[in-house]
Simulated assay, not measured.
Amino acid sequence: MSQKIKAPNDKNRNFLWGIVALVVICVVFIGFMVFNGRKSTDVELSAADVSFSVAVEDGVVQLRSDDVADDAPTADVYEDYSCTHCADLVEADSESMEGALDAGEINVNLHTVNFLDSNGNESSSRTGAVAMAIAETGDAGAFWAFHEKAFGDQAEVARDWRFDELADAAEQLGVDSDVVDSIRDESVMDQYKPNLQANGDRLRELMGDQAGTPALYIDGEYLTVERDPEDPSKLKDWVPDVIGGEAGDAPQESAAETESSDSE
């Protein structure tokens, strides 16, 4: 029997086509991974419509109404953007807090800490620094929208988004371009991380070994974060009680388990 003799270049040609196909597959795969990694910001973000102001002083985000009542209580909230219980508290109190701020019934100081940075994943510092940078622009609507998004979608935003995604979000919120650039080039970390650490040190001075988040003080007095009596799986909205009456009890057995500084 006779065999068909193949041209000597056939094997080389087949090999080259195989290489081309492999390169195309790799390019498609890399493109998919890049797209998939950035798709988290494929959401429409817009600044909140609020009637209060925002400022940063000594690393503390201050929320105030221009028409705040003289006897309005001041709430100091210690929170960590990676803390699940902090996200639970934001879910419980954000709507009433916004309303009370708009009405001038309360002053709020947000002390952002970075207790839960761990294993090289500085999610608490990263998101906290970005939030502080947005707050320092004085755009209360942009800050409040970012704060709500970061805690409301904590697993996606606060824990997974990197600086490019966070910069994209800030840009959507109308934040000044120089601030967006400082987020994208990560320089916000050097600028604001020391503030987060200082806030954590301040909470340790207040609570000692019990230091953890969320922690709430009303006019300097510790207020226990309680479980919602109607749904113990959630935290109670503390704002109506504070506006309508006196608050304050010893920082002992909180009904909500806090995420401790020992988790660093």
Rank of each mutant, 00 (worst) to 15 (best):
D76W: 05
N36F: 13
K6E: 15
I30L: 06
G128S: 01
A169M: 09
R227S: 03
A167E: 09
W238S: 14
E205F: 06
P194F: 04
E264P: 00
R202W: 00
E205T: 05
R126G: 00
P214F: 06
L22Q: 04
E186V: 10
V188D: 02
R202D: 04
G248L: 05
D139Y: 10
A131C: 08
V225I: 14
Q197N: 05
L196Y: 03
L89A: 09
G120N: 01
Y78F: 08
L196H: 03
I183P: 05
G120V: 03
R162A: 02
S260K: 07
S263D: 07
N121E: 07
E171Q: 14
D76G: 05
H147R: 02
A7M: 13
I106W: 03
E95G: 01
P73D: 02
E91D: 12
I30S: 08
D66E: 14
N195K: 03
K193Q: 10
P194H: 08
F146G: 03
A7L: 14
L206Q: 01
D80C: 02
V239I: 15
G212M: 05
F163L: 03
M207Q: 12
S187E: 09
F143T: 01
M97P: 12
G152D: 09
Q172Y: 09
E91V: 07
M97T: 09
D219T: 02
F163R: 00
G128T: 02
A47Y: 03
V175K: 03
